[in-house]
């Protein structure tokens, strides 16, 4: 800023009007709250996930199919997938809000939501396919 430049206030606007224009957007608490709640739900799900990773480390495809065919595993995995990609979308949205300004903000947000939704759906379908595949054990 030029030091010799003396600014003038020529916006005849009251302090209250200014505060109103710059104040709370009246939304955002639900976004913040859902981010925390999905995080809380992901704490036990992550613990379960670590145990399953230890069970499946180095596993072959038929081990994974057998594991995913159990309803308890499939339910936990579905909950994990849905909450992970929901939490991911909430978190990445905040990054977009922080760094993407102006006209690019809306398309960036929509792109993120679309991508998160599609990847989440893809994960859900993969889990369901594992869960609902005919049991390999029964016939053999």
């Amino acid at each position: 800023m030029n030091a010799s430049h003396t600014p003038r206030i020529d916006v005849m606007r009251s302090q209250l009007g200014r505060a109103r224009g710059l104040g709370s957007a009246k939304t955002g608490v639900d976004h913040w709250w859902l981010e925390r709640m999905s995080a809380v739900a992901l704490v036990p799900l992550s613990g379960w996930f670590v145990l399953q990773v230890l069970r499946l480390a180095g596993a072959e495809q038929q081990d994974v199919v057998e594991w995913g065919g159990k309803p308890a595993n499939a339910s936990m995995l579905l909950a994990l997938m849905v909450l992970t990609f929901y939490h991911m979308q909430l978190g990445l949205q905040v990054i977009i809000d922080d760094y993407v300004h102006g006209k690019a903000h809306l398309p960036a947000s929509l792109l993120l939501k679309g991508a998160a939704l599609l990847i989440g759906l893809f994960a859900v379908i993969a889990v369901l396919k594992l869960a609902l595949a005919p049991s390999t054990k029964a016939g053999a």
Binding site: Q61, V64, V65, M88, I119, A123, A126, L130, A133
Partner: peptide, 12 residues
């Protein structure tokens, strides 16, 4: 996680 979903998809 996206790569993890690829793993899951390949298994299915």
């Amino acid at each position: 996680s996206v790569l993890g979903v690829c793993w899951l998809n390949a298994a299915s």
